[in-house]
């Protein structure tokens, strides 16, 4: 018997007739329906720049403040209490097994994006040693990606939430290009992948470097906004 990764209740997978006729291996559920419902999917009604859920298709107030540094981000889920708790356990407590919870939703979201090369936001060396994994690549199943970015400054040393908005906006460019970046990026459409879009500062820094590497276009996808 398998148990829900989040609430530990027993899972009783129910097969629908449609799934039965599909003739392909079914995605094995890892969380129970009740836990799954706690995550709010973002609908098509979102900010065209940051991807946040709203009631119109207009550029949101936060994005307007960025002025002429546009970004095209999509986010899968709203950053609500359930997502906060999930990120807390996965990323900060370091429960690597929880990567499975988001593998399938992220796979579907990636399939809807138009891009040539996937570039996940990296973690710094110290985080890699203590946490033991990169929370973003943890979600990838077997989608190919390129580690075209390196972290030079410790941009994620303290959790983003511990900084004020002002501090977050002022952080220095933390990324540099990997040695092979130019060959990977030249004239390609790049999709950046990150966990949470908070202010957009991290993604804007990353995008700037990717453009320097010769990319034709840069868009991004985050799990939450």
């Amino acid at each position: 018997m398998t148990h829900c990764l989040l609430c530990h209740q027993e899972l009783h997978p129910q097969m629908t007739l449609a799934q039965f006729w599909r003739w392909q291996p079914l995605p094995v559920p890892v969380v129970c329906p009740r836990c799954e419902q706690q995550f709010e999917r973002i609908t098509t009604m979102h900010c065209p720049q940051c991807g946040r859920q709203q009631t119109s298709l207009a550029v949101c107030h936060d994005c307007e403040r960025w002025g002429d540094v546009p970004l095209r981000n999509h986010a899968v889920y709203t950053y609500n209490e359930a997502m906060k708790a999930y990120m807390q356990q996965y990323k900060f407590q370091g429960d690597y097994a929880l990567r499975q919870v988001m593998m399938e939703p992220l796979k579907q979201a990636l399939a809807q994006q138009d891009y040539d090369v996937l570039v996940p936001i990296p973690v710094n060396q110290e985080t890699w040693q203590t946490r033991g994994f990169n929370q973003v690549t943890g979600w990838l199943l077997n989608q190919p990606f390129q580690q075209a970015l390196l972290v030079t400054a410790d941009h994620k040393d303290q959790p983003q939430s511990a900084k004020t908005r002002q501090q977050r906006l002022l952080t220095q460019q933390p990324f540099s290009l990997a040695p092979n970046a130019a060959t990977v990026l030249k004239d390609r459409r790049i999709l950046l992948l990150d966990d949470v879009y908070t202010t957009g500062r991290t993604l804007r820094h990353a995008a700037a470097q990717i453009y320097l590497g010769g990319a034709k276009a840069v868009t991004s996808l985050t799990l939450a906004r």
């Binding site: 370091g94 429960d95 690597y96 890699w128 033991g132 994994f133």
Partner: peptide, 22 residues
Amino acid sequence: PTDQLPNRAWYCRQCLQLGRLT
């Protein structure tokens, strides 16, 4: 057998609430 991290360390999921042990 799946409780291994990409940095090769093993970790315990059962007592994670008290801070992760690897």
